[in-house]
Design a protein around this nucleic acid. Structure first.
Length: 98
DNA sequence: CCCCTGACTAGAA
DNA sequence: TTTCTAGCCAGGG
């Protein structure tokens, strides 16, 4: 596969993310057609995230980007994303949050 | 071709 | 619930 194609694939997925929506690295990788490349997605966003809605991507547990928690949390909050103790509230949780 | 790094993950402790 | 560990993918030396 041609160089940068991976990045283009990821970019395409992120570009269609709307305000208020959030995806995990794994989901982005899958959508981009690179299942299992969650880590690679993170590596890419860490260096070429500029110009992309990187703050709408979080870990599978709702964790934010190391070193950017502040900014990311603020941006997400301004978009109405619900969080809990610095972690994005993930859906599909079978456990009772008591 | 070998080795290492990293904004990840699922599963075991 | 939190920490550790072993896989995984794409890049770069």
């Amino acid at each position: 596969m041609a160089p940068q194609e991976f990045e283009d694939d990821v970019r395409r997925v992120l570009e269609r993310l709307t305000s208020g929506t959030v995806m995990t690295y794994g989901e982005v990788a899958l959508e981009a057609g690179h299942p299992g490349a969650a880590r690679a997605v993170g590596t890419f966003l860490a260096r070429g995230g500029t110009g992309l809605p990187w703050w709408r991507v979080v870990t599978s547990t709702g964790r934010l980007a190391p070193g950017h928690e502040r900014e990311q949390a603020q941006r997400l909050r301004s978009e109405g994303v619900r969080m809990n103790n610095g972690r994005v509230v993930m859906r599909a949780r079978s456990k009772d949050p008591k």
